[in-house]
Design a binder for these strands. Structure first.
Lengths: 232, 232
DNA sequence: ACTCTTCAGGTTGTCAGACATGTTGAGGCA
DNA sequence: TGCCTCAACATGTCTGACAACCTGAAGAGT
């Protein structure tokens, strides 16, 4: 199943999206009191429970707030999560450029600052990546790969960097899934990049920031080069 | 009523919080399949609908995802909205370290890619910074400074980087306000750093990425050095 | 031994109905 | 004019029923 299983989109997700669009489009500006649940149910052609669940999703996203008896009010026009949507359409090359910028230096810091616990976490992450490589699931493999990189960045012990990288992770994940598919990275070798990742972790563990940075840069460069090669 | 009306907290909000805590505390790490709705309802002592609504709120917050028949899975340990709270307490040194990492390389890219419009925007931003320097308001000065740096990063024409930097801006802004206060950066010269910023923009405009990077690195280094100097 | 099919049990998705609780605004009275 | 009452409307919670989906085990066939 190379394209992924098809599933019907649950009504509550459709309803959530529709209501969300009413807000982001400006139809329901901040401060607006939404129509009541029974009205929305009739308008959307779903049950009241489905409307309630959709409104809860919007509340969880920080867009609306509900007061019993008074109604549901728009409290924000853009979900703080919205920028990842923009970045969902990001070019993989741009993603890799940011990786080059952030991660190559972060591994240098990680090599300087890693603790024993960090090294243990890195080894676990590498083992998990290898375990995920055994299965045929690209997404699981990417998740394990991303987790390894998160662990590397975490070893730099800079909470600002951790938080920022966490923001980057969804974009990175999507970029990697796309890349693995686009370049068929796992066709010849399901555990693509294992040697480089093992060497990276060894360099970090050994406190050799320059070598760690060089390894990662070379790895990212190679992938970028393949991405930019003429389609053959 | 200055303190706000007191209201009972709806059960669904309490349930949402409780489930959220299970995730953020690490009890349910990413990848965990949550207990079924009927089990959670029994555990929390509420109805199944209340559990469903709470789970929808968590889904809207990006923490869980649900698949009919399979279960509900944790997909993130921290709400994307949460990390700004963490970073509100970030050390200025950590903020500067990230600046060193991101911005120094970003200015190199900006120098390669800037358009005429970018250069015009940079000149405007510099003029705005100078105008803000005339006033006695530290915050306004910081805002103008941040805007200048945003314009520099934007000249790199990488949307992923733009988005990520935009996430960083609130943290940066807070860090700079604190720094200006802590080090009294504007006491002797209200337009602190003007020469360096003008030179930075000249270098970007001239397409000299190395010089731009060196200027910014020197500027950040100098500020870091002052931050780390013994108090006296 | 391996593969495919079937089925039971468990899970989420949706709807309807009933009742509780809270809010708001209109009307009436002092 | 201010206060009280009440009706209408709104959200909050629960229950029950059924649909649709997933997973793993068991059985049958090759």
């Amino acid at each position: 199943m190379p394209l992924g299983a098809l599933r019907p989109t649950p009504l509550v997700e459709q309803a959530t999206r529709r209501l969300h669009e009413q807000i982001t489009s400006g139809e329901w500006p901040v401060g607006t009191r939404l129509p009541g649940e029974t009205t929305l149910a009739a308008t959307l052609g779903v049950g009241r429970s489905t409307v309630r669940e959709a409104l809860r999703a919007l509340a969880g996203a920080g867009l609306v707030r509900s007061r019993q008896g008074a109604g549901v009010f728009v409290i924000a026009a853009e979900s703080p999560q919205d920028w990842p949507d923009t970045l969902r359409r990001a070019a993989v090359g741009d993603v890799y450029e940011v990786r080059m910028l952030m991660e190559v230096q972060a591994v240098g810091l990680a090599a300087q600052r890693r603790t024993d616990a960090d090294v243990a976490a890195l080894c676990t992450a590498l083992a998990d990546r290898r375990a995920a490589a055994v299965g045929g699931d690209d997404v699981a493999f990417v998740d394990a790969d991303v987790a390894l990189h998160v662990a590397v960045v975490a070893a730099a012990h800079n909470p600002v960097l951790d938080g920022l990288f966490a923001e980057f992770v969804p974009v990175l994940r999507r970029g990697l899934v796309e890349l693995v598919d686009l370049l068929g990275l796992r066709a010849a070798d399901p555990n693509h990049g294992d040697a480089a990742h093992a060497a990276l972790i060894d360099a970090v563990a050994a406190g050799d920031g320059k070598r760690a940075g060089d390894i990662l840069r070379a790895e990212l460069d190679e992938t970028l080069a393949r991405l930019r090669a003429p389609t053959g």
